Computed example of a mutant assay.
Amino acid sequence: MRNILATVAIALFAGFAGAAAWDYSGLGPERTRDYLMANPEVLPEAMGELQRRDMMARVEPLRDELEMPYPGAVLGNPDGALTLVEFSDYACGFCRQSLEHVNQLIAENPDLRVVIREYPILSAGSADAARMALAAADQGKFEAFHNAMFAQDGLSAETIEAAAQQAGLDLAAANAAIGSGAYEAQLQNNVFLGQSLRIAGTPAFIVGEQVHDGAVGVELLSEAIAEARDS
């Protein structure tokens, strides 16, 4: 009954009015209304489900594009059967905090592919670091740069170059590619995807039918991965 009545609450939030909403359960208006009044905790649960459904309605038409990485901008198993998408910004402290969590998930799930969407929304330096990350992907050194960049003390032209050197990039080739505008279309597309999904901050994670904002930790992401694996 709880699931049915949660659906009724969704109908209310979605705009059904009066008896039309109460009848949505098939249990009759009086019985339905009495249950909801006695168990108002169903309403927040239903609102959460409504938000999830709304997000999935935006994700599904874009899923193939979301899960198709920029070549080389992948962590974990590039051929993995499960895909976790992360919208990330090198100026984001919560993204830095989540790096350890993502690495743990990769270690625990050999079939996990992590697609990093560079989403430089916090500063001009964010965009510069994102361009260098894509240059690193072109050189087969994305993971090394990604880890080195988050290990830096702050985000500046100097720390971006230091991370690139630590990752072993050919800086002349990387800067030439950046100067040619080779990565602008990819960054613009990432912004389009993020805005289409109403992602306002980083990190944001998408796996299966779950979307999580912020540094939500290993446990919640592990549960989402397990659910996606079982679906």
Score class of each variant (00 low, 15 high):
residue 188 Q to I: 02
residue 205 F to G: 00
residue 219 E to G: 12
residue 229 R to L: 09
residue 163 A to K: 03
residue 173 A to V: 10
residue 225 I to F: 02
residue 177 A to E: 12
residue 190 N to F: 01
residue 144 A to R: 13
residue 147 N to C: 06
residue 147 N to F: 10
residue 140 G to I: 13
residue 160 I to T: 08
residue 179 G to P: 05
residue 164 A to N: 13
residue 170 D to I: 05
residue 181 G to A: 02
residue 170 D to K: 09
residue 222 S to E: 06
residue 208 G to R: 05
residue 216 V to L: 05
residue 174 A to Y: 02
residue 162 A to V: 10
residue 215 A to Y: 10
residue 171 L to S: 07
residue 174 A to P: 03
residue 230 D to T: 08
residue 166 Q to K: 15
residue 158 E to K: 13
residue 192 F to E: 11
residue 144 A to D: 13
residue 169 L to R: 03
residue 140 G to T: 11
residue 223 E to C: 01
residue 226 A to V: 10
residue 141 K to I: 14
residue 227 E to Q: 13
residue 162 A to W: 01
residue 145 F to E: 03
residue 211 V to G: 00
residue 152 Q to H: 08
residue 177 A to P: 05
residue 154 G to D: 11
residue 188 Q to P: 01
residue 220 L to P: 03
residue 189 N to L: 03
residue 196 S to R: 10
residue 178 I to N: 03
residue 202 T to D: 02
residue 188 Q to N: 11
residue 184 E to A: 09
residue 202 T to N: 04
residue 147 N to Y: 07
residue 140 G to E: 11
residue 200 A to Y: 00
residue 220 L to W: 06
residue 211 V to A: 05
residue 170 D to E: 03
residue 163 A to N: 07
residue 168 G to Q: 12
residue 198 R to G: 02
residue 166 Q to G: 14
residue 202 T to I: 04
residue 210 Q to F: 06
residue 167 A to V: 11
residue 173 A to L: 14
residue 169 L to N: 07
residue 180 S to A: 15
residue 181 G to E: 04
residue 181 G to N: 04
residue 165 Q to L: 15
residue 204 A to T: 08
residue 207 V to T: 03
residue 167 A to N: 08
residue 210 Q to I: 03
residue 166 Q to N: 15
residue 204 A to M: 06
residue 164 A to R: 09
residue 221 L to N: 09
residue 194 G to M: 01
residue 173 A to Y: 04
residue 163 A to I: 11
residue 204 A to F: 04
residue 156 S to D: 07
residue 187 L to W: 00
residue 196 S to M: 09
residue 197 L to V: 07
residue 219 E to N: 13
residue 227 E to D: 09
residue 170 D to Y: 03
residue 226 A to N: 12
residue 153 D to C: 01
residue 161 E to R: 15
residue 220 L to N: 12
residue 159 T to H: 08
residue 164 A to P: 10
residue 165 Q to G: 09
residue 186 Q to T: 14
residue 142 F to Y: 15
residue 191 V to G: 01
